[in-house]
Simulated scan of single mutants.
Amino acid sequence: MLVSTFISVLVVAGIFYSVFSWQKYQQALAKMMAIDSRITLEEDNKHNLEIINRDGSPRLHFRVTFKDTPVGKPLSLGCDWINPQGEIIHQNRYQTRTVEKEIWHSRCRYRIGNSSIPGTWKVEIFSGDRLLREQTFQVE
């Protein structure tokens, strides 16, 4: 009887700890925000590309800097690449490595092809269903 009571107490304590940890992580995620972003090619020259020439099918990188990231756990992020007609052409879903500091950099990628529709494109990055940053660019 004593052993089963002890095991029950441990199970209940484990459940409470898990729920508390999950809530704390969700609160930390809610505080996280994007403070900078830019679109670059593979080589990051620290400048934002506003006009993309589709010749040669360049691989674009949407580089985002976050602040107040929850340290000690990876982030689950996603990006949508949206063409001028409002269609999601490509989606990235990924998990970062374990976050080591409150200022954190991440990126998602997409290759613009010769057949890509010219005009104003948009890329969005989010955590769950929370939009963290969006950026537009021109494809010629």
Rank of each mutant, 00 (worst) to 15 (best):
G14F: 08
R97D: 05
S18G: 06
T40V: 05
S21I: 00
R54I: 01
S106F: 11
N92P: 05
S37H: 07
R107K: 13
I39L: 09
G72R: 05
Y17T: 02
A28W: 00
R54N: 12
Y94C: 10
V99Y: 02
G78F: 06
K67A: 14
L29C: 11
K73P: 00
V64I: 06
T40A: 03
I89K: 15
N45Y: 06
G56A: 10
D80M: 11
L29K: 13
E50Y: 10
H105T: 09
R97K: 03
R63V: 15
R59Y: 02
C79L: 02
F62R: 10
G72H: 04
K101I: 13
V99G: 03
L60C: 07
R109M: 13
W104E: 08
V99E: 02
K67V: 15
E50K: 10
G78R: 11
N48Y: 04
L41M: 06
H61I: 08
W81R: 08
W104T: 04
M33R: 14
E87W: 12
Y17C: 00
C79D: 09
K67Y: 12
D44M: 08
C79A: 10
N45K: 08
T65C: 01
I88A: 03
I15K: 07
P70F: 07
E87T: 11
R38D: 05
Q23I: 10
S21N: 15
V71F: 02
E87V: 13
E102M: 13
P70R: 13
L49Q: 15
E100V: 15
S57P: 03
Q85W: 00
K46E: 03
L60W: 07
V71D: 06
W81K: 11
R54A: 07
N53R: 15
I82T: 14
T65H: 04
Q23V: 10
R63Q: 11
R38A: 03
L60M: 12
V99H: 02
V71T: 12
Y94S: 08
T65P: 00
N83M: 12
G56H: 07
L29I: 03
T96Q: 08
S18F: 14
F66I: 01
L29S: 09
E100P: 04
N48H: 12
D55M: 03
I51A: 00
F20D: 00
T65G: 00
I103K: 04
V71A: 06
D80V: 09
D55I: 00
S18V: 01
K101S: 15
D55H: 12
L77G: 04
K73C: 02
S37K: 10
R54D: 07
W22Q: 15
I35D: 03
S37C: 07
Q85F: 08
E50W: 07
S37W: 04
V71K: 09
I88Y: 06
T40W: 01
I89D: 14
W104C: 02
R59M: 12
E43G: 01
R63A: 05
R63T: 13
Y94L: 13
A28S: 14
E50A: 02
T98E: 11
T96W: 09
H105Y: 13
V99K: 03
H47T: 11
Q85A: 15
L75W: 08
T96K: 06
I82E: 04
P74T: 07
D68W: 04
R54E: 06
G14E: 11
E87S: 13
T98W: 00
K31C: 04
S76G: 10
Q23T: 07
N48T: 10
K46I: 01
I89H: 13
G14W: 08
T96E: 07
S37D: 15
C108W: 05
